[in-house]
Design a protein around this nucleic acid. Structure first.
Lengths: 235, 235
DNA sequence: ACAACGGTTCGGCCGCGGCCGAAGCTTCGA
DNA sequence: TCGAAGCTTCGGCCGCGGCCGAACCGTTGT
């Protein structure tokens, strides 16, 4: 009857509201200090310290001491993936956050998912890439086509370097607000980095929200329009 | 600061040991009665009833009344996926089940993951398929090649019918014991069904364990040997 | 009709664990 | 060298939630 690893411990770790809020804040992929996380969860520093010690001990978080600060981050993409999965389940079962604040629509529009884009824009771009053969969608999986590689290289993304990394180049990630996939993996991260370097998007200092700037709107629209033209020619 | 759906509730639901045991038992993909689940979790019927009501209310379980029995099952593959993810995290952080029983090695060798095969055999088969181009692996994603389709059709699996279903045909699923992917999706389910119909594998009546019969060993070996021959020819 | 069985509801016990106040430790800046 | 800031440890309070015994309800089979 006892089978497999004990999921109860790690799940109950995530299951405490204060800890869940901390983990949610860390879903931005950023490293945050103990104090920031305490504030995020609405608890005192000493309580937070206890929680963080547990999360660290269980291997969910990595910690890095820097002067008198201690920076915590999620210890891996697999952790983020499970949390995103839990969000999906919670959303599916109508378990929306009690009182969704005024800033919520912004986050629905665009946000950071660990280290890549998520939300309406991310999903729209992903679907555009697929429709025009820049990404090949095989069942739930994606890969970069030669045409897609040429496109991203022309945009200034060093795809060859990404391919060398051990991390998968493309990966689908289920968007909890859109319930449709968006692009993750090394390329997903590169696209976000690129967009921020170009000033197309700006991260909020305090949340996962991602603001797409006016130039960003134009740039993304251009990507989509090019897709549109390609699609017409193809049909 | 409050962002996204509330993951704490669903996580804490999974986080109770009794409930986690029930969910683990349901990972076999079977529907189990309340009594069986109570027994599985080592608690009395009335306590189990309360737990099951909560899991049902949260949408994690589906229930089907049949006579004086009530059959519970996981309400979807996404739930199973999150649980498998949690198992992966728990395993990675060295959180192995306290005292792994004697039956454990069997489960490590071969078991059912919701509705497809998992364990050593599943991983070996998956890698064999990939190496010989029956499955195409693009990053973390798989798809069925024409050669692969021909192979499975020849084996007697109605691939065309599977393609019609809304469910993705191929899907990778991370094996928690092997830490490498195996085949999920509609095709993964079909392979398991096929193996059981042919008498190549038998499911345990009480656990996720899957016993590969002697004919099954021969059949799977034949699949892999064919792969071997193909690979030699290819290189 | 009745007994047996599976499941649920109710009530009360109890312990685990989250929470904070206070105190201590280390690092940083003046 | 001293004070302030960030974080942790300790101790004690308290409430939530899991657990079971008992009683209740519907189904089944005789």
């Amino acid at each position: 009857m006892k089978e497999g690893p004990s999921i109860a411990e790690v799940a109950s770790l995530i299951g405490d509201p204060a800890r869940a809020n901390m983990l949610g804040a860390l879903m931005s992929g950023r490293a945050l200090t103990a104090g920031e996380l305490a504030n995020e969860a609405g608890i005192t520093a000493q309580t937070a310290s206890g929680h963080l010690a547990k999360l660290r001990e269980a291997g969910l978080l990595m910690v890095e001491a820097q002067g008198r600060h201690r920076y915590f981050r999620l210890s891996g993409a697999d952790i983020a993936q499970v949390i995103e999965g839990l969000m999906g389940i919670a959303a599916r079962t109508g378990n929306l956050r009690t009182r969704t604040g005024p800033r919520d629509p912004d986050m629905r529009r665009s946000r950071v998912c660990y280290d890549h884009m998520a939300g309406e824009w991310a999903v729209r771009l992903f679907e555009g890439f697929v429709e025009t053969g820049r990404l090949a969608l095989a069942d739930a999986a994606v890969s970069l086509t030669p045409a897609g590689k040429a496109f991203f290289v022309a945009e200034g993304i060093d795809v060859a370097a990404l391919e060398k990394s051990r991390r998968p180049l493309c990966r689908t990630c289920l968007d909890w607000s859109e319930r449709r996939p968006h692009l993750g993996g090394a390329l997903g991260k590169a696209v976000l980095d690129h967009a921020m370097a170009k000033g197309w998007a700006r991260r909020s200092a305090t949340s996962r929200t991602l603001t797409v700037t006016p130039p960003g709107h134009l740039a993304f629209q251009a990507w989509l329009s090019a897709d549109e033209a390609l699609r017409r020619r193809a049909s």
